[in-house]
Amino acid sequence: MQIYLPIAEMPVSVMLVLGLGAAVGFVSGLFGIGGGFLMTPLLIFLGIPPATAVATQSAQIAASAMTSSLAAVRRRGIDMKLGAVLTAGGLVGTLLGVWLFAAARRAGQLDLIIVVSYVTLFTVVGSLMLAESLRDFWSARRGIVRLRRRAGAHPAFLGWPLRMRFPRSRLYASVIPIFGLSLCVGLVGALLGIGGGFIMVPALLYVFRVPTAVVIGTSQIQILAAALLAVILQSVLNGAVDVVLALILIVGGVFGAQFGTRAGRALRADVFRFLLAVLVLGVGLRFAIELVLRPSEPFSLSLPDSRR
């Protein structure tokens, strides 16, 4: 069954988009990430204009994040205080990112910045996570217990001024690095058109040593706020949000996210970190290959954002 998308100005198969929404929703619920970095390339591959793809998938992320947040609230897996600090930093970062986006476009280097950022970010973050997770597996096999939290073994910047207590996250740390992290995530997210959950989740896990259950719920709260802001900003600034496409993605996504959240609870923590590392590294390598391989069609056509 085909349906015509009024803003994207093209027909799509309803079942195909429902399936995409469900698959990305599953991954999103499983790992507590937005899934934008998977959905955007898939939609562009279907022929949806890039501006519409980036803008519209924010609506689906908002819906999945709403469901996951409510589930996390019920099982008390949210640190509201930490979530508020992360959200505040994320909003400042988003505004900076939007400004940087426009500046790079004026300089004519936006494409380059996006591809290089994707490759660097995903391969570096993915490799770090994979190495950490493999070390975990290795020590477990040799029967060595690596303590995840050692007294006095915190990174020094957690002891900076403005220390704050986050009892739910078992964290007592300076707000400066936390605010800085969320600012960077918001900035990169706005620049690349992604939620940034895949940076936020490992950073909270490894750097701040927040318990896994709290990390997922808290990052969903921050993603929800960022995605809602993105939907409204994209509508006002670019007119690129397609409500029909959003509805199909949402219906597929909310179901996928439910099953993902359940599967996530059944996963062992070390397996969870390993799978997330493989996913992030895989996306980074895919972009790296695209950058290195001789393209079969070296030419590409781009139309103005005003029409699409």
């Binding site: 609506a59 689906q60 908002a62 819906a63 999945s64 994040a65 709403m66 469901t67 947040s69 409510l70 589930a71 995605a227 809602l228 939907v231 409204i232 509508s235 949000v241 409500v243 959003a246 509805l247 949402i250 219906v251 909310v254 179901f255 996210a257 439910q258």
Partner: peptide
């Protein structure tokens, strides 16, 4: 559109 997202997310939960 943002409200639709919230509503669907809530209904699903």
């Amino acid at each position: 559109t943002a409200l639709i997202s919230l509503a669907f997310g809530w209904v699903a939960s």
